[in-house]
Design a protein around this nucleic acid. Sequence first.
DNA 1: CGTACGATCTGCT
DNA 2: GCAGATCGTACGA
Length: 202
Amino acid sequence: MRLKLPRKYYLNEDVTRISRDLIGKVLVSRIGGKLTSGIIIETEAYNGVNDKASHAYGGRRTERNKVMYSEGGRAYVYLCYGVHHLFNVVTGRKDVPQALLIRAIKPADGIRAMLKRRGKEEIFKAFSDGPGTTAEALGITTRYSGEPLTANRIWIEERGVIIDRKNITAGPRIGVSYAGEDAQLPYRFRLNEDAIKMLKYE
DNA sequence: CGTACGATCTGCT
DNA sequence: GCAGATCGTACGA
């Protein structure tokens, strides 16, 4: 079973719900002639204008983050620390700036290509354990910000991976201490380590 | 126009 | 455990 998630999937108005639901889905890129993918194992939700950790907090709308205000189903990619390209999925209604950060994947297709992009010889523990390395492995850069996830460059598939919801832990987001009380919100979703090891897909 | 800094990663101690 | 890398972006002057 390989079903590209349709436009409608991204229109749900609860970004935390989509963030949790995307655990076990497969993020795919066809970039530079290579098909690469991985099972999503960690996400973070950024919930609209009232979330102090969000780039759209207080209605901030800039050249960088304007894609957050589009209808769900597009990529929002931005440069972090001048070094890392972080890949986000825009969700929800137009003019409601919700997005979720893909923080980690378990490699699936095109592993050699991903290792090459990462400048690594073989898989090690931190292969894609973090949002910067995940985007790098998939070849995703800021030039793909705004890209529709219904096209054939970057998309997400359902592949029938079975996820037991009790193996998903929700906790505070990483690196958002500047967000005051919102830094404590349980908007980070991660599949437990033993469940990651057991992951299988068709 | 100038400046401070970040939804991070790595390597060295 | 911690500092350095590295630069586009945001925001104030």
